[in-house]
Amino acid sequence: MKRIHDSLIVQTMSRLLIPLAQLFALYVLFFGQYGPGGGFVAGVIWTTSMILTFLVFGLKSPQGRLVEKVLHGDGVGLIIFVGVGGLCLIGGGEFLNYANLEIPGLDAPARRYMGILLGQIGVAVDVAVTGISIVLSLAYHDIEQEYHV
C-alpha cells in the first residue's frame, strides 16, 4: 500500500487475474436469475478486482486512473434502481411493480424479468462504487502522498 508493487510476478498475475475477476462478476450478475449470485455479489467481486488494480498498479497508472474515475459514479446505481421503479409509475402501476414497465413487445412476465435484471445492474453499480469509495477514503493519506511526490 505504501508504494506501488514492483514485483514482476505480482504485476503479471494481476494483469491476468483482474480481467478474469471482472468477467466472473459480469457472469454472476447476468446469471443471477438462473443460479446463485446477483447484483450484490457481482458488485462486490467487481470492487475487489478494482481494489487489486489500485493496490498493485497504483492510482497513477492508466488502470488506476480508471479506478479513480469510478468514484464519480457515486449514486448512479441508486438512480438506476429508483429510476426503474419510477418508470413503473409512469407506466401506470405501483412503484417497483415491474409488470408496468413500458417495454413494447413484451408481456408481463418478460417485463418483470427485465425489471429484475435492470434493478440488479443498479444494485451492482451502487455496491461497486460504494466499496471502492470506502477503500479509497481509508487509503487517502497514501494517495495524497503519491500525488505530491
Partner: peptide, 19 residues
C-alpha cells in the same frame, strides 16, 4: 410463471420484496 426467473431467491429479493 410471474417473472420467468428460475432462481426463486432472486425473484423474491428483486420483485416480491423489491422495497
Amino acid at each position: 410463471a410471474d417473472t420467468l426467473t428460475p432462481n426463486v431467491v432472486t425473484s423474491v429479493l428483486m420483485d416480491y420484496r423489491g422495497f
